[in-house]
Simulated scan of single mutants.
Amino acid sequence: MRVDIDALTVEIARTKLVEDVTLRAGSGQVVGLVGPNGSGKSTLLRCVYRALRPTAGAIRLGGDDLLSMSTRESARRLAALPQEVAAEFDFTVAEVVAMGRLPHQRPVARTTDEDRRTCGAALKGVGAGHLADRGFLTLSGGEKQRVLIARALAQQPQVLVLDEPTNHLDIAQQLEVLALVRASGLTVLTALHDLNLAALHCDVIHVIDGGRIVASGAPHDALTPVLLAEVFGVRAHRVAHPETGAVHLLFDRLPSQ
């Protein structure tokens, strides 16, 4: 499913956190948002998964206006994994994943065999079937991310929104999580801090600075040394990944002026 964001602006306390952002995510594409802390990445994504209402602009899923949909309808099309997920109660992994079925159930409806099959397949798909009876709070960071992705997949969306999905994960877990996302075949809109992970896994990258998109394109086209110096304040050296050929970045400090 295609995602269209048109002229999106978010203003809070007379400060524009996001200003006039327009971007497209084609069906099945993995689209990355990168930029310094405070650049507006998370604010933009919060609008897409309806945690925040934009001041101006439009978001469309498959051509339909997001804000005109019921929350149930939008949840059937789009699932989100925010940057921080509160878990005060120690639900089992199976219970956490089952929450992904709520948009497809009537109020007070009981879990069906189809729901259980869908949740079981989602857990198996992320390699976490053996965790079904574990308490969510007992899991490692990487295991929790797998379970939360399984919950999103059990929701059976067409669009997946991820805000820093690799936070707090070691490098092996980061690669595993992004490979799972890539293999899902969904349209994915994700914010990433690690530019090399973004270059490796994203079809298109949008660089955001000061609430505006300052560069867009395939990783090789968007992540240029000149732009990285201007936006991130670092000197970047670009090399080709020896196996994938993807752009890989080596960084050092800019020389003193």
Rank of each mutant, 00 (worst) to 15 (best):
L139R: 02
F89E: 04
T9K: 11
P36T: 02
F232P: 03
L227D: 09
A121C: 09
D20K: 08
I5R: 03
V161F: 06
S140D: 02
L254G: 05
H104D: 03
S74G: 11
R14M: 11
E230F: 07
R2D: 01
A172C: 04
I205C: 08
T118R: 13
L137F: 05
D20E: 12
H104M: 05
V188H: 08
L78E: 01
R72C: 06
S42Q: 08
A150P: 05
S27C: 11
Q158M: 09
R14N: 15
A152C: 13
L192M: 12
G28Q: 05
P255G: 02
E176L: 14
L33P: 05
L33V: 01
V161E: 03
V231E: 06
A87M: 15
H248I: 00
G185K: 05
P107W: 01
A246D: 07
V85A: 12
G26F: 04
F91D: 04
G28D: 03
A56M: 11
E95P: 13
G142L: 00
G127E: 02
A58P: 12
V126T: 07
R53P: 14
L195F: 13
T118K: 07
L178A: 09
P107Q: 01
S68A: 15
E19G: 06
K124S: 15
G125N: 10
A56T: 10
H206Y: 13
R182G: 09
Q105R: 15
G142K: 00
F91W: 10
G210Y: 12
E84A: 14
L223V: 07
D64G: 10
G141V: 00
A215H: 03
H104N: 06
H201C: 04
G142R: 00
H220F: 11
H248R: 10
E88K: 12
L17C: 06
L228A: 07
L45N: 06
H168F: 08
Q145G: 04
E11Y: 12
T244Q: 10
A56I: 06
S39P: 12
L250D: 08
G125R: 05
A80C: 15
R53D: 09
A218D: 03
A183H: 11
P157E: 00
D65S: 15
G245E: 09
D64R: 14
V239K: 10
R212H: 13
D115P: 09
V204L: 08
V147M: 02
L189Y: 10
C119A: 09
Q173I: 00
H220V: 11
V21W: 05
H201N: 04
G129T: 01
M99W: 07
L61K: 02
L45M: 13
R60H: 15
G185I: 00
T55A: 13
C202P: 08
T55I: 11
A218W: 03
I205H: 07
F232N: 02
G35L: 02
A7D: 15
T118S: 13
Q105S: 14
L153V: 00
L162V: 02
A179D: 13
A198R: 03
V159P: 02
D170E: 05
A128Y: 04
R14C: 11
S27I: 00
